[in-house]
Write a protein that binds this DNA or RNA. Structure first.
Lengths: 223, 223
DNA sequence: CCAATGCTTCGACCGCGGTCGTAGTATCGC
DNA sequence: GCGATACTACGACCGCGGTCGAAGCATTGG
């Protein structure tokens, strides 16, 4: 009984929060639902069992997203029906300052620019992205050598993949992790395009004006 | 919370039964839901309050239908989601013999031919049908006089409307009632196009071969 | 290695809502 | 008018499922 899953207020709140298309952690969904973590966990496993959401482990976090655009459209339809009957719902706003723009995620670039980079590389066919797995194309290897003097051979690691899709905290979309992701951020700092913020616990990455320009030249949005 | 309405098994069964687009009586929906009439009545009023179904009184029956094609499509979508998760549902079959073809409803024609007649008359702009209300057009008045020697003036009645939409039991769509509906059936019998079945309690109306042909000439399906 | 964080599992509580029995209203057939 | 049928209204029961506390497991960071 799928509708019963959506029918519960707590679960409905969670699903509504996920309607943005972003992935949210269990904690955030807990907050959205206004219940304790135990209760939220129960709800989330039910939603997952019902095929409405999917889970992605990320360290000690668990990110949830709607498992399908179709799910979103059905939920949209239900909200439409509710609208005529006189009900309504609210939306939650955004969050933080400008570390959404660029920051480190472990050792690689995250934030707006991180997501933008992965998107651009995929669009330029430097990477081939199949669901969770990402692989470097021959074209991509050439690009790395020519534009950034990065040798793909040197990036092989016994226990760590070359490329990996990593869920972005602020954008709630994937950015590039793995040894390649780390190498890219490292190269950016070497080239003085960017540097980690000086303040102690900060994850912010500050791009220089020159760096931002060069980055845009390689990974900027094209139409 | 619309989804909660759909979430209950009894209500879900009712809604599924209504997915055919036909209107069903409270009793039939009761049977579909597998609960007592009291329970079913409660469910139906909730569904109506939620704007999912509409009610139409018909003598001592109450016919329910989905209030909107949109409702049907949302339900369809929910069933689609359920299908992937491994669930499924069944369908109920048709019902009776050939009195679905033509029978009396009080004093007017019902069944397949009754519905067909109203459809055809509306399509020919002899009637103007606005939701529940039906009115005879000038063109319709002419048609009645010319083709069937029926004078619309003679049909006015102090307490009964000339035209009325009546919900068809077998087709679950409207057919034509009111003094006009009665006059038409009466004229058909006068013309020996049709006659009520001889067997005592029967509601069947038997059309002669000739009558069926003439009827089709006036109200047959055109593309 | 230890403490902290993020999340899940288990178990118990409890209230909402579905259920039905009884009773009441409306309509039809006679 | 009468009884029968179709349905609704009220009230009480009770079980399912949402809820949270306590405890457990996994991961991170030091």
């Amino acid at each position: 009984m799928i509708a019963a899953l959506v029918g519960d207020p707590a679960r409905s709140n969670m699903l509504t929060a996920l309607m943005t298309g972003r992935a949210l952690t269990a904690s955030e969904l807990t907050h959205q639902a206004g219940v304790t973590p135990q209760t939220a966990s129960s709800h989330l496993s039910k939603l997952e069992a019902g095929g409405l959401v999917e889970q992605e482990k990320q360290g000690r976090h668990r990110y949830y997203r709607l498992s399908d655009p179709d799910v979103a459209s059905v939920l949209e339809g239900l909200e439409g029906l509710a609208a005529r009957a006189g009900h309504m719902r609210v939306r939650t706003g955004p969050k933080d300052p400008a570390l959404r723009h660029a920051r480190v995620c472990y050792d690689h670039l995250a934030g707006d620019l991180g997501v933008q980079m992965l998107d651009s590389m995929t669009k330029q066919r430097l990477l081939r992205q199949r669901k969770q797995d990402i692989e470097l194309t021959a074209e991509g290897e050439r690009f790395l050598t020519d534009a950034l003097q990065i040798s793909a051979d040197a990036l092989s690691h016994p226990r760590r993949p070359l490329c990996r899709a990593c869920l972005d905290w602020s954008e709630r979309r994937h950015h590039l992790a793995g040894t390649l992701g780390a190498a890219l951020l490292n190269r950016f700092t070497e080239l003085k395009w960017a540097a980690r913020d000086a303040t102690p616990g900060s994850r912010v990455v500050n791009f220089t004006r020159h760096g931002e320009k060069r980055f845009a030249a390689l990974f900027g949005e094209r139409e």
